[in-house]
Design a protein around this nucleic acid. Structure first.
Lengths: 246, 246
DNA sequence: CGACAGTCTGTGATTTTCCTGAGAAACACA
DNA sequence: TGTGTTTCTCAGGAAAATCACAGACTGTCG
C-alpha cells in the first residue's frame, strides 16, 4: 500500500497500514546514524545493531520487513550473520553494504535470492531506492505500488532506469538519474543544493558544491532541451521540478 | 494541527492540542534570547541551554518537538551533542546554526535525515520558517497542516516558493519572498519598519533603515500593480496587508 | 497655505549567485 | 591495455539581487 502525504511524497506502508520496519546493521556508529536518520525520514520504523549477535537478537523481537547489513562486522562474518538471520526471518529481503573492491566475491550469489547490495560509500538516494525496491518486491508492502515516477510528460522508471519525456527516450548517466529521481520524488518542492548534495552524492563526497549546478545543467540539456522547461531555479533557495503546464 | 487565532495568525500545535516545544542551544546569550523571544511569539514553548551537557539534560526532561542547535559550543562538538540528543530523542528534528564560511565543513549528511541548517547571521523569519517546516514534516504536528498562506486572492506556497495573485503567477526574489511571508503571516496587523527589519533582515544588518521602504515598493509593483492594493501604509506606524475587498 | 517629517522610487554600484565550456582524472568495459 | 564514458574541478562570464543615495512626492499640522 502507498499513501500520498500532503507534501506529495509517496510512502510505502505494509498491507495493514502500519509503517514498514527496517533493521540497520553496521559497526560504524556514524553509518547507522546516517541511515537511521534518512530512513526514518521515509516514514519507516528503524532499529539498529552494531554487530552480528545484536542483529540476530534485534531481528528476533523487531521482526523487520527488510534488513540493511554490512558485510564486515567485528564479531562474525557477513555470511554467518545472514544464515542466522534467515533462520529467524526466512523471507526477509536483505540489502548488503560492502566495500567497493570486495564486491564480486560472494555477493553475486546472494543477490540471486532477491536480495541486493550497494557499495560503500553509498548515496542515500541509492540505499533508499534499493530498499524500496526490495520491500516492494518482497510483498511486505502492496505489490501494486509501482516503480514509475511521473511528473507532467516526464517519466522515470526506477526498475528499468528508463527515462522519457513526451514519449521520447532519454539516456541519463547514473548520477543524472539519481538527481532526477530525487527531484521527481519531491515535485513542486524547492530542494536546496545542500539537500541535494546530501541525498544524491555519497556521504564521503568532499568536493565542490557546484557539482549540483553542473548536473542540473546536464539534466536541463537532456530533459528541457528545446521544450517548455520543467526544472526551475529558485535563486538563493534551490531547485524544483514541476509539470511544464503551470 | 493548526488553529487560527483571533488575530488571524495560524499556529502550529501538536496533535493533542498542546503547544509545540522547542529547545534552543547556543552559547551566546544574546542569540538564545533573540531566538527565544521570536519563537515564543510563535506561541511555542521554549527552553534554552548554553552548552552541550545542558542541552542533553534539558532535552531529557523537556522532551522538545524540535531543537535549534549551534554547531560551535564551548564544551563539545556539535556532532557529539547531536549524537547524545539522538539517544534521548531519536526522532526530533534539529535545525543547526553554523557560521557562513563553515558550511561545507561537515554539515554533510545532516540535511538528508530531514534536518536543516541556517547560517549565521540569520534572519528570524528564516529560522521560524525552517523550524515550522521541520516540525510540520516530522509529524510532531498534524501532517495535514499545509504550507500555503492565503490572504484574499493572494497566495504564497512555502514549499514551492510560489506566489500568485488572482491565479496569476508572480516571481519574487528571496528577500521579497521573506518580506511577503512575514506580512501574510500577520494579515490586518500593522508591522513597524523596525519589526520588519528585525524579522526579515539578518540580526547583524547594519544598513540604511529605508531598505524596508524599498522592498515594500518592490512588492507593490509586483503584487498590487494595476490592482486593488493589498499593502497599505500607516504613516508613522508601519505597513499592513489585508484582502483587497475591505 | 507652507513647512516638515515621513514615504516613495529611479539610478547605478557592488556583491552574490548561477551557468557552462574546457579539460583532467577516474572509471568501465572490451 | 586502450577507448569511450562519466565524474568532477576550475574559472570566466552573465545574470540577478541587494542596497545606498538622492531627489520627488505626500500627508499632516500649525
Amino acid at each position: 500500500m502507498t499513501t500520498t502525504s500532503p507534501q506529495g511524497r509517496t510512502e510505502l506502508l505494509r498491507p495493514d497500514g502500519s509503517p514498514v520496519r527496517v533493521l540497520v546493521v553496521d559497526d560504524e556508529l556514524s553509518i547507522t546514524e546516517l541511515l537511521s536518520m534518512a530512513l526514518r525520514y521515509e516514514g519507516w520504523q528503524i532499529r539498529s545493531a552494531g554487530d552480528g549477535t545484536g542483529a540476530v537478537q534485534t531481528a528476533r523481537e523487531f521482526r523487520p520487513d527488510a534488513v540493511v547489513l554490512d558485510m564486515m562486522l567485528p564479531d562474525m562474518d557477513g555470511l554467518a550473520v545472514l544464515g542466522r538471520l534467515r533462520r529467524e526471518l526466512p523471507d526477509v529481503p536483505v540489502l548488503f553494504l560492502t566495500a567497493k573492491d570486495a564486491v564480486e566475491d560472494r555477493i553475486a550469489g546472494l543477490t540471486a535470492g532477491g536480495d541486493d547490495y550497494v557499495t560503500k560509500p553509498f548515496s542515500l538516494e541509492e540505499v533508499v531506492a534499493r530498499l524500496r525496491g526490495l520491500i516492494r518486491r518482497s510483498g511486505a508492502a502492496d505489490r501494486r505500488s509501482d516503480s514509475v515516477l511521473v511528473v507532467g510528460d516526464l517519466t522515470l522508471d526506477e526498475d528499468s532506469h528508463e527515462v522519457s519525456r513526451a514519449g521520447e527516450n532519454i539516456h541519463l548517466t547514473a548520477t543524472e538519474f539519481e538527481l532526477l529521481r530525487f527531484l521527481m520524488r519531491n515535485p513542486r518542492r524547492v530542494l536546496s543544493k545542500a539537500q541535494i548534495l546530501d541525498r544524491v552524492w555519497s556521504y564521503d563526497f568532499g568536493g565542490q558544491a557546484n557539482v549540483v549546478e553542473l548536473y542540473i545543467s546536464y539534466l536541463r540539456r537532456k530533459i528541457d532541451a528545446g521544450r517548455e522547461p520543467m526544472i526551475h531555479t529558485r535563486r538563493g533557495a534551490g531547485y524544483l521540478i514541476k509539470p511544464a503546464a503551470s
